[in-house]
Design a protein around this nucleic acid. Structure first.
Lengths: 120, 120
DNA sequence: TTATAGTATAGCCAAATGGCTATACAATAT
DNA sequence: ATATTGTATAGCCATTTGGCTATACTATAA
């Protein structure tokens, strides 16, 4: 079986790994909360395609959905980005020699507290 | 056709979206340049699997390969992480209201200089 | 020279991905 | 009451992904 993006970091990075989804986040960052229609408009893809992307972003926690009547309004949630940025930052730091290379480094990197099958 | 991770950002985030690959990068960050065997050891997967992961990381530019005889030595390259971190950072900034919301924000986010089919 | 060690490639598989069309459904508007 | 709008779901498709085994290849060791 292929893994299914168990960890939050998996989901976050995976969600960010698609240009359409990044652009959706950009729009939300630029103009604040927006409806699904507003998020669909700038793209040349079918409505269900954006609907799917929004679900991916929602599951990754990068977006929060609020339903008002038949309108679904989305807003950016940056918390998952913190974890992702932190991961990158730590690795850059080590590489730049800012911190000493502990041999426990690898173990510290991602807390093993999550008991997924593919935890790191 | 599904997209094929054209942009550098696509490749970077996609590469980081897998726990095994992140752990490989962690090992490289922690103990410096390592051979394919050394990178294989900590995992409970077949050798060709790691070989594939290394190729993905190499194509994303996150790793540089040096062949010495039959030994392939890999080292971390953080440059692509800069771009990724910068993307995240910019979006967090806007969300936190640190910068004013320009309506040109979205256009600025990723330079449209790459003429890929899926550029943002 | 023959064996072994270090890696990559080929080829297979099941699952996930991203896209589309058609359709459903609920909420608002007429 | 009926039409329309906003959005999701179902179901299909081709491609990609991550994993495996078997095999090939090259370089070093015996």
């Amino acid at each position: 079986m292929a893994i299914q993006y168990n960890t939050s970091l998996d989901r976050t990075f995976h969600a960010l790994g698609d240009g359409t989804r990044r652009k959706i986040l950009s729009i939300l960052a630029g103009q604040g909360a927006s409806t699904a229609s507003e998020l669909l408009a700038p793209f040349d893809v079918a409505q269900p395609t954006i609907s799917k992307h929004l679900k991916v972003l929602e599951k990754a926690g990068l977006v929060r959905r609020e339903v008002e009547g038949r309108i679904h309004r989305f807003e950016l949630v940056t918390n998952p980005m913190d974890e992702a940025e932190s991961w990158i930052s730590r690795h850059k730091q080590f590489w730049e020699g800012t911190l000493s290379r502990l041999d426990t480094f690898v173990d510290q990197l991602e807390k093993p507290s999550n008991k997924q099958e593919k935890n790191e």
